[in-house]
Amino acid sequence: MPKSIKQLTEAPQRITGGHRLCPGCAEPTIVRQVLMAAGDRPIIAANATGCLEVSSSVFPYTAWKIPWIHLAFENAAAVIAGVEAAYQQWRRKGLIAPDVRYGLVAFAGDGGTYDIGLQALSGMAERWHDCVFVCLNNEAYMNTGVQRSSATPYGANTTTSPAGRVIPGKPVHRKDLTMIMAAHDIPYVAQVAPALPPLWRHLINAAEKAFEYEGPAFLNVLSPCPLGWIHDSSRTPEIAKLAVDTCFWPIYEVDHGAWKLLYKPKEKLPIEAYLETQGRFRHLMRGDQGAQVRKEMQAWVDYKWEQVLKLCGEA
């Protein structure tokens, strides 16, 4: 049952203010909402190296009011798997009451999910650990200064896919990790975003299901990054909504194999409506080459959108 806002606000506050994430960063919003959706079950969080980790745990301070563990960059899924392995033993030994079920959650950026963390993530999913893996997907390695990842969109300007005089940003499309995770046939996969109302609700609902189901769940959450995407810090939820309204970031879930589109824009906006909000695409808004890239981006968005519609039985 989706929780009411009142119920959500009654959940324990598990991450405090005072962390050092940038103003306008979507990550703490996502983390807070995911953890609110977990309800009052005990939570243990693992974190890959990345923005969230370095900004929330600067020794001797911590923003975490729950047990929290960070070991390295590529292994958040293996770390939460290890915690889960111990957790199952505590249950077996009766060290945890039979009616108590923990929520075990891993947070990682797109680097720690799509790229260096993919192997551990795939292994964790295949082994069916009872946990939730949340990708805070800001579409590049923001913590180290905006280097491209395999989640970085085609054409985006990053420090390792710079928009130059010859090459207009990242020369290849991003990979579709949500579908890769859906192909693991795990209980729950969702692609969501911390977007303006009413869309944020789908993020909460997805997180609620992810914690509820036994076995692995994966949430791919688009996470606008004012620093790397180059937008005003006040526009984060709006830009997330534009990502959905342009179908650049369709939000959908795969619940025990059932594909469901969570939101279908009344009017599918052209990709430019999204691109023009962000400095990382600024070079695409001028000249013939920019127009060509935008055309290719639109074609790719259309292709992926049709694919999602078909899978969700909406085509």
């Binding site: 980790e53 370095v54 745990s57 600067v58 020794f59 001797p60 911590t62 975490w64 009011k65 729950i66 047990p67 929290w68 563990i69 960070h70 070991l71």
Partner: peptide, 8 residues
């Protein structure tokens, strides 16, 4: 609860 593996 405590924080393991903080930025140090």
């Amino acid at each position: 609860p405590y924080t393991v593996g903080a930025l140090d």
